[in-house]
Amino acid sequence: MLTILFDGVAYGMLLFVLACGLAITLGLMNFVNLAHGAFAMAGGYVTVLAMSKLGLPFLACLPLAFLVAALLGMILEPTLYRRLYGKSHFDQVLFSIGLAFMAVATVDFFMGSTQQNIRLPEWLRGRSEIGGVGMGHYRLLIIGVCAALAIGLQLILSKTRFGSRLRAAVDDTRVASGLGINVNRVFLFTFAFGSGIAGLGGALGAEVFGLDPTFPLKFMIYFLIVVSVGGTTTITGPLLASLLLGIADVAGKYYFPKMGAFVIYSVMIVILLWRPQGLFSRGSGK
């Protein structure tokens, strides 16, 4: 029981890392990026390649996955994404689905459609009993990294100068540029950072979720659930939504193995009927 809870928390934490970049671009830049999962996939494949081809240790691959995905975001934001900021959500949806499809096909072309495996180092594969709860070491690592990330994000957004610039840029682009804030650069770094976190999530999650070229499409629904249930005005909203989703999914698969994914969908529908604006959003976000 507690073990399931623990696994659910780890699973949810992973979802948070995967999705929080999307929450940032969506909440701050009002951009619906359905290709977000592609950046996560990039991080996953970077890890696979770095470990098998370069022989890098797993932990060293995590920052690398972050950097490559962030770099990818840094290239795509000014060349493609930036043109879409002013457009309708429908255009953004079409555009980002298109990008996701291209990413899927491209990875399929170069890497093949088979599922990739990540060989975790020995010390991460073990499992310890702590207070009667069996905890996988890898799950512990995930929880640690994700918790640090969540706290860090919260601090960056609320306390630092970058955070306040970002909020200013979001509130009123024109005024912000009048104040000497380089809005383009702020958005560029935000987007790259969000993509980088997704890449990190992809690297961490490859072992748990499995990694194949359809990753961006398979997990699109999870990302959407996290951001629409959790809202995008805070960091804690998506975090709580991720945890809820993770625990519901793990528990659902354990207790009702036949029902598969139905449990989370049912939870999602109930939540939406109850709170159509999302569980943790304030006011009538529109």
């Binding site: 629904i221 951001v227 529908i269």
Partner: peptide, 11 residues
Amino acid sequence: TDLTRLMVTLG
């Protein structure tokens, strides 16, 4: 919102 609609229709 638009976002919840995307999620629900996909779901």
